[in-house]
């Protein structure tokens, strides 16, 4: 796939450090996404994931390099790129409907109240909050607040969605439901999505591509892992797929050991041509290791169910 809907080209972010020195969070970072693709970024805290997302959103400017969206270099924020914030960032003095309507009326400035409300209501219904339109954020649970955040982001029918650990503050059950919903909505509307997560299973369930970032400072994009699981995967039978553990172990190995040592062990790493990893395909050493692991797991599972 050569269609680059989003292309991050050689961006760097530097902050003035202590004593006149500069701290480089990352430099010469290249990354691209195709239209309709769902991409997750995984990396340790402080490696610069939020910085990349803010640059993509236009909330922050890179020290060097550029971001090209749909053939155009971006400058500043845009209604084409909706952000779902980790802390949901709802305006507490507005109701659920008011929060979504604020976004709708920002996009379509000449719409009248009735039209704005009707449009906002559609998206409140879409995220399953029908009946809570007139509640204030303080009256909602964490999961419901994040649903409003999702409705607000979707209501402006963006070309892409940027999500910074959107579910990390939620309990496991709510997180699961919202993952299902985000996946369904993104597939239905053909959204291009960029999501930061700490949760490996979340990335495996949602992502088409997983970006692995090494530890900062001076973080690099080490690998792009293609998700080998079929597009119509379900959350409950994810772990039954023959390549699930291979994929999961590859990511966890990276997080546990390789994210620290990557820079030292891979001197010839070309940030412009980051290796694309196909789990389970011949030619990669991890595939053969994982086959043994696979048999070992299927061997133990009858014992577990008995």
């Amino acid at each position: 796939m050569t269609d680059k809907f989003i292309s991050i080209e050689a961006i760097a972010k530097r902050y003035p450090g202590a004593g006149g020195a500069t701290t480089t969070v990352f430099e010469n970072l290249w990354l691209s996404m195709a239209r309709g693709e769902f991409c997750c970024v995984i990396g340790h805290s402080g490696c610069g994931k939020t910085t990349v997302l803010n640059i993509l959103a236009g909330l922050d400017a890179p020290s060097e390099g550029a971001v090209i969206v749909d053939g155009q270099a971006i400058s500043g924020t845009s209604l084409d790129r909706a952000v779902i914030f980790q802390s949901h960032a709802l305006l507490p003095w507005r109701t659920v409907l008011g929060n979504v309507a604020y976004a709708v009326s920002s996009k379509w400035r000449n719409w009248d109240r009735v039209k704005v409300r009707a449009h906002a209501q559609t998206f409140i219904d879409l995220v399953g909050l029908t009946g809570s339109e007139h509640k204030h954020p303080s009256e909602l649970s964490g999961g419901m607040k994040q649903r409003v955040g999702i409705a607000r982001a979707l209501s402006i029918t963006p070309k892409m969605m940027l999500m910074d650990e959107p579910f990390s503050a939620l309990d496991a059950l709510t997180r699961g439901t919202l993952q299902d919903e985000v996946r369904r909505i993104c597939l239905e509307t053909g959204q291009t999505a960029f999501m930061i997560t700490h949760d490996v299973d979340e990335a495996i369930y949602l992502a088409d591509k997983i970006f692995l970032m090494t530890n900062g400072p001076g973080a690099v994009l080490a690998e792009v892992v293609e998700n080998p699981l079929p597009r119509d995967r379900g959350r409950t039978d994810l772990h039954r797929h023959p390549l699930y553990y291979a994929l999961r172990n590859h990511i966890i190995d990276f997080l546990v050991t390789r994210s620290k040592t990557f820079a030292a062990e891979t001197p010839g790493h070309d940030p412009r041509n980051v290796p694309l990893v196909h789990i389970g395909k011949p030619g990669l050493s991890i595939a053969s290791n994982e086959e043994q692991r696979q048999t070992w797991i299927s061997g133990t599972s009858p014992g577990l169910t008995a």
């Binding site: 909330l59 500043g76 924020t77 845009s78 209604l79 909706a82 914030f85 960032a89 976004a103 920002s106």
Partner: peptide
């Protein structure tokens, strides 16, 4: 004013 509220307005091109 909380930065995230200002950021909401910024992403909506207000």
């Amino acid at each position: 004013v909380r930065k995230e509220w200002v950021n909401v307005a910024r992403t909506l091109e207000v």
